[in-house]
Nucleic acid binder design. Structure first.
Lengths: 248, 248
DNA sequence: TCTATTATTGAATACAATTCATTTTTTGAA
DNA sequence: TTCAAAAAATGAATTGTATTCAATAATAGA
């Protein structure tokens, strides 16, 4: 009876195999070296079979970015449900994102690449939507923090939608991170310790939003203490055991 | 005597021709459609001659991004020397960047693409350095504003380097802009008017930095008035006459 | 004027993504 | 169980382009 369902399941399993193998290949040899034929061969399938799943190489890259985003989202949601003040939780998202990017530099570069016109427009509509869908859970988690902060009075009600309010911290985070990714860029501008700056500016922005309790972002001691606390209480189990991410 | 110099000049003129033509081709047909052989032909040169200038297609793209950055920098420096408070000038940079990106969407996507691992690492060291150099003048202009703000007391001296302080506003700006670039991304998350949000969050961040005079970022009237004033007084001459940019 | 040097050329090469005619496997009716 | 039709898998051929390089042309300097 369920023969159709079985085929469906097998098809999905094979897609996972392709994506997992692609991840390994990219980790070992870089995005540039990824070849469709080699990937298919490495999975003991023909090239054409790979194209049953992905309409193009770009399509595959967006799918890969999506898969990793889903994993990332777990840590993200974990940070969102941490037992701490709304402001600390909001900041924890920035720390989680930063740590995740440091731990999986290949993945972060892939995400950056996926959002590029060339790749994004080269992927199928379905894949683009899938990536959008993968963004929903973390987006919901963040909205929830923002909403709770407004409800408890930690964050003044600016009359803005929660989604709009999260755009700032999120944009700041990805903007600075993508500069960090670009080899030599910040060094060339004489800007040291960009990670520290990211944390500091996130705090400046939260202060600007009037998010209580305010914090002094240039108190390096306190900031480091907070970051370490987040790493211990929220991110401790990142990068252990089953984690076979994209780190070099 | 100066035959060597003349050749040098001719070589540089030809490089400009290649870049200008590439810009036109990209404007008309997109980055994807740019072909080295077609570009060479369009300039009445052989393919090999193009490779005397650019070691690879990526090399060309970084060179192109650099050229546009240099033009962008002019408006940028103009904003920096505007007769207004340090805070207004700092904010004007964000507005200038945003307007430039809206006016030249192809260029902005190109810059985003250029900073991607695949392109950045595919370009020659010389080209990468050239792009870095093109970044210096605007960076200096921004540092100058920050320094003046500290000196006049508009901005509390946080004990931070001016370069470090500008990273926040800059990162926020590029981060949100690159989300705007990605077709459908913010719509999918239900975040409307991203341009407005960018301006608003820039102001939130400046408030957070304690940059005087503070402003209420959710006073849409006042914010719009300021943006319009910047457009009139600083950006009025963008997009006129000789401007043959990348707009569609 | 002539040779050596340098620059230009574009056809040939190389490399990978993608396609598609062929083969293999699966399905479900007889 | 058999078999024809349908579906899926295959990988060699096709295609599209970036890049190279042997041949040719232009230039410089003796």
């Amino acid at each position: 009876m369920g023969t159709k369902e079985r085929r469906q399941r097998e098809f999905e399993a094979r897609e996972r195999l392709f994506l997992d193998t692609a991840r390994t290949l990219i980790r070992d040899e870089g995005i540039l070296a990824l070849q469709m034929a080699r990937l298919a061969r490495a999975c003991d399938y023909a090239t054409g079979t790979l194209y049953q799943h992905f309409s193009s190489k770009e399509d595959l890259l967006v799918a890969l970015a999506t898969r990793r985003l889903e994993e990332h989202a777990q840590y993200f949601c974990q940070a969102a449900t941490w037992q701490a003040s709304t402001r600390e939780r909001m900041f924890a998202l920035t720390v989680a994102d930063y740590r995740f990017a440091r731990r999986h530099p290949g993945y972060s570069r892939l995400l950056q690449f996926a959002f590029t016109e060339v790749v994004w427009d080269g992927a199928s509509e379905a894949r683009r939507r899938a990536l959008q869908d993968a963004l929903q859970p973390p987006a919901r988690a963040v909205r929830q923090i923002v909403q709770e902060a407004i409800d408890t009075g930690d964050l003044p009600d600016h009359g803005q939608d929660a989604g709009a309010l999260m755009l700032g911290p999120w944009g700041l985070c990805t903007g600075i991170q993508s500069m960090i990714q670009t080899r030599g860029l910040l060094e060339g501008l004489g800007i040291p310790e960009p990670g520290q700056q990211l944390f500091r500016h996130s705090q400046f922005l939260l202060n600007g939003l009037g998010w209580q309790p305010l914090m002094n972002p240039v108190d390096d001691k306190a900031l480091s203490r907070l970051v370490r606390r987040i790493e211990n209480e929220v991110l401790a189990n990142i990068g252990t055991a089953a984690d076979n991410g994209m780190e070099p």
